[in-house]
Nucleic acid binder design. Structure first.
Lengths: 249, 249
DNA sequence: CAAATTTGTCTATTGATATAGACAACTATA
DNA sequence: TATAGTTGTCTATATCAATAGACAAATTTG
């Protein structure tokens, strides 16, 4: 009773085109090591047979992955895997953007995309323990490692207590450092809720993804050591480039 | 600079058909509470305008969701939301299947789908601290809550130490109870790595999903209190029905 | 150099996807 | 009982997705 292992799993008339399904399969094969990095993919005819589709359909999938920078095709030689492995992004009580990526990348930083003051939505108000409609500061940021976007986040802070945190963030490029300016020397992650969905238009633009990509979504509340909520955030990670490692708290 | 909030995010020629993208958006709107349960959806013409597509395209999306049992359409009246919210599945040092779902569902259990003895793959061997190729027992299980599948998992145990755990699992329906028969009274989750991908054919079948659905994937190692690895597992959760709540370890 | 292998390009055909418009069928309400 | 609002069905058309076959262009190998 073996051999059903990976099995053919191409679904027709599913709303997802065959070339996109095959592109996903190839991405997954790279992620699991089935297709080694820098090695050649099987030739197009072999892939077509393997997935039970026409060669041109395989070509569409490959062409999309070449567009995404995952593969490089060379006429007469073959098609080669470029993509590196996924980043392993640590999540725990003391999650900090740069701390946990040490050793995996040579360069990493956070870019402040936008900031605004707005009334707290019910969800944000509940997370921060504020009255509904209280003013909060929202920071939109993007995390980058080795020049590639690896996260996209919105963070909300109580506007009264953290007035000017947007400027601090713009200067320091670090939420930890910005919070320190307001007397927050330490903070803990109180809760994290995790889900996944297809990337929307904003995700596609900010994370440099192709349509159909998946994002991991975390919704988290950070608190001071004495339990006072200071930050509510929603982060999105491109599933093809990032995995989340849940570390001991 | 407001008003980009949810924004239109329908992508054309992306390999994912418009009706499937809109179905996903509706599912998400239900999950976030934008479309309340048991309430009527906006009429088809309104939805078509909202997403910038033809009414017939919206109808295709709705028809798929009716097929999935999420919506019910009534001629002359409207289209109504049937689906409940996502289950919030706790992940932490003492993750147990049924413990954390209390209060969210009335009925829950684990079904043993299959079991086998096989040589440990490099990944499994490393997780369990065994020599590559050592014999391990694999259990394939499905978790159900209120009659709907909410997880699908493969778990590996050292074959020598846990010979017969497959039968124990079939009898008790509980991994915790089965481990207790082998003298394991307590265990902790040592590590969890999280990712997301499109469901493959086996996921679609076992989790009762439609093509294009997303699954959350966790890869975890459980250890005894003194740090000895006893269980390596890979679990898949349907993202449309489950979210993962990371609890304090 | 010749042959084999592999990717690239072209034409043609079929079926699925998306748009457009018109009208029927059913429900709720004034 | 009209009328307005909603879902259901039909026809028609244009574009995208997938298959099929043939051959060109580049590379590697004997």
């Amino acid at each position: 009773m073996t051999g059903h292992d990976v099995a053919d799993s191409i679904e027709r008339r599913s709303g997802v085109s065959l070339w996109r399904q095959i592109a996903d399969r190839i991405l997954q094969a790279i992620a699991t090591g089935d297709f080694a990095e820098n090695a050649a993919l099987p030739p197009e005819v072999a892939l077509a047979e393997r997935y039970g589709v026409n060669r041109h359909t395989v070509r569409s999938a490959i062409s999309a992955l070449v567009q995404e920078g995952v593969l490089r095709a060379e006429q007469g030689r073959g098609t080669f895997v470029l993509s590196r492995k996924r980043l392993s992004y640590p999540i725990g009580a003391r999650t900090r953007f740069s701390a946990g990526l040490q050793g995996q990348t040579s360069e990493r930083h956070i870019v402040l995309l936008a900031s605004s003051i707005e009334p707290a939505s019910p969800r944000v108000a509940e997370g921060l323990g504020l009255a509904r409609g209280s003013e909060v500061i929202r920071l939109e940021t993007r995390g980058e490692a080795d020049g590639r976007p690896v996260s996209r986040a919105a963070a909300w802070f109580e506007a009264r207590r953290f007035a000017g945190i947007d400027k601090a963030m713009a200067q320091t490029g670090s939420i930890t450092a910005s919070l320190a300016r307001f007397g927050v020397d330490d903070y803990l992650r109180q809760s994290t809720v995790l889900s996944a969905r297809h990337a929307d238009a904003a995700d596609l633009a900010d994370l440099d993804l192709q349509p159909g990509a998946i994002v991991l979504v975390t919704v988290a509340v950070n608190v001071t050591p004495d339990g006072q909520p200071i930050q509510f955030s929603e982060s999105r990670f491109p599933a093809e480039r990032v995995e989340l490692k849940l570390s001991a708290l």
